[in-house]
Nucleic acid binder design. Sequence first.
DNA 1: TTCATATTTCTGCAAATATGGAAATATGAG
DNA 2: CTCATATTTCCATATTTGCAGAAATATGAA
Lengths: 100, 100
Amino acid sequence: MFSAMGTEPRLRIMQLLLTAHPEGLVVGDIQDELDIPNSTLSHHLDKLKSEDLVRVRRESTFLRYTANTQALQELLQFLYAECCTRNKALKPRDIVTLCR
Amino acid sequence: MFSAMGTEPRLRIMQLLLTAHPEGLVVGDIQDELDIPNSTLSHHLDKLKSEDLVRVRRESTFLRYTANTQALQELLQFLYAECCTRNKALKPRDIVTLCR
DNA sequence: TTCATATTTCTGCAAATATGGAAATATGAG
DNA sequence: CTCATATTTCCATATTTGCAGAAATATGAA
């Protein structure tokens, strides 16, 4: 997942899908927004899908992509655990500033 | 940074350095632990260093690498912000279970 | 059926990355 | 100085990745 998000176009796609969450976006909208050629975009979406970072469903002619929040949650939990729980390298308070 | 951590050997290096935090480890110790040829390991460490994920200091003949917790904190904050703050895709409570 | 639109697959190529053996460099001990 | 150890750099190779044009496929409307 780190690898899949480790490229600028794909990170931008994820950010875009998050801003559109939970409705998500159809491919054409992503294409218009990010200005990526269709075949290139398709490859990136495929990569994100294969890493389970996005979900797809068909709406007649369109394919609607949504961010897979479950996966992002796991990723965040993993990083949090490695840094804050398993090892005490970081203090939780330094991450989550709003906490009551 | 996602890209730098998106490869198995480098993620393992980061995990190892976190378990050894804050002392860190010298290259030889990492090599023994992960069983990676010296030149390959050197390349990976260089990549992590160039992404500012690790810090190095020389101890006579040895080079001691430590995880850069500042960078990890920023990474975690970024991901947290994208998922929980900027967009309400994830609930903070789902990440930070311990919060009082 | 034909047509138009949406999206993917095919194909190839260029660039980046991973890998590791061998040689080079750095440091300190004797 | 020489020697031994630690680590990097040099070099070549293999693999992966990014990119995008063109063709193929999917869907639905007329």
